[in-house]
Amino acid sequence: MYGWIWRKLPGPLGVRITLATVLALGVIALLLFVVFPWLEPKLWFNNVTTEQ
């Protein structure tokens, strides 16, 4: 999977490393700012209130 992505990246080694870093950071940002905030309320371990 990662080998395939690496081979798809264009340009010389320096450009590829930069692109790969940008891609990785993009995925992390997507997870932190979009996926996790959406996922979190659906999980069970964050309740602090009692039933009213």
């Binding site: 371990f45 964050n46 309740n47 602090v48 209130t49 009692t50």
Partner: peptide, 15 residues
């Protein structure tokens, strides 16, 4: 004051 208990769980409430 109410919060979850034990830490990292929502099994019970600490009051």
């Amino acid at each position: 004051l109410t919060t979850c208990h034990p830490k990292f769980s929502d099994e019970q409430r600490l009051i």
